[in-house]
């Protein structure tokens, strides 16, 4: 399929690395958003919404976003979506929480299932 998964979630990488192009890096949620914004400037299109639903960006450290493999002209919709998402991310207080490994694993699972449910439809 003509997609790239940008992620900092190992579970997503492990599950999809043989099937899709997955760019995994051990970086923060915000760095994932910035990386996607850079990709948008290069002409890629954002295919899944960069914000999670209800799991707040200041809680989960993990994020996977699907973008197009193909590069075209700058897609203004994509740019708006990613810029809005970065603005929303900034709005949240940065919690000083040290999650236990079990909770971190739950966050990875939630992010993975969002990507899984997105891919299972296409």
């Amino acid at each position: 399929m003509d997609i790239v998964i940008i992620t900092n979630n190992k579970k997503v990488y492990e599950m999809f690395k043989d099937k899709y192009l997955v760019e995994y890096e051990d970086i923060t949620y915000k760095e994932i958003l910035i990386k996607v914004r850079n990709k948008v400037h290069e002409g890629h299109e954002v295919l899944t919404h960069p914000l999670a639903s209800s799991v707040k960006p200041n809680e989960t450290p993990f994020k996977s976003i699907i973008i197009s493999k193909k590069k075209g002209k700058l897609n203004y919709n994509s740019l708006m979506v990613i810029e809005n998402s970065i603005a929303t991310y900034e709005k949240f207080l940065k919690l000083k929480v040290e999650w236990t490994d079990a909770v971190l694993d739950d966050f990875r699972t939630i992010d993975l299932t969002m990507i899984k449910s997105a891919l299972s439809k296409n």
Partner: peptide
């Protein structure tokens, strides 16, 4: 209806609303 995958789903007559 919330329909974004695990722990985020809603069912209508038993059907997962995201479908």
């Amino acid at each position: 209806l919330q329909s974004q995958g695990l722990l985020h789903d809603t069912y209508v007559y038993g059907v997962d609303a995201k479908r």
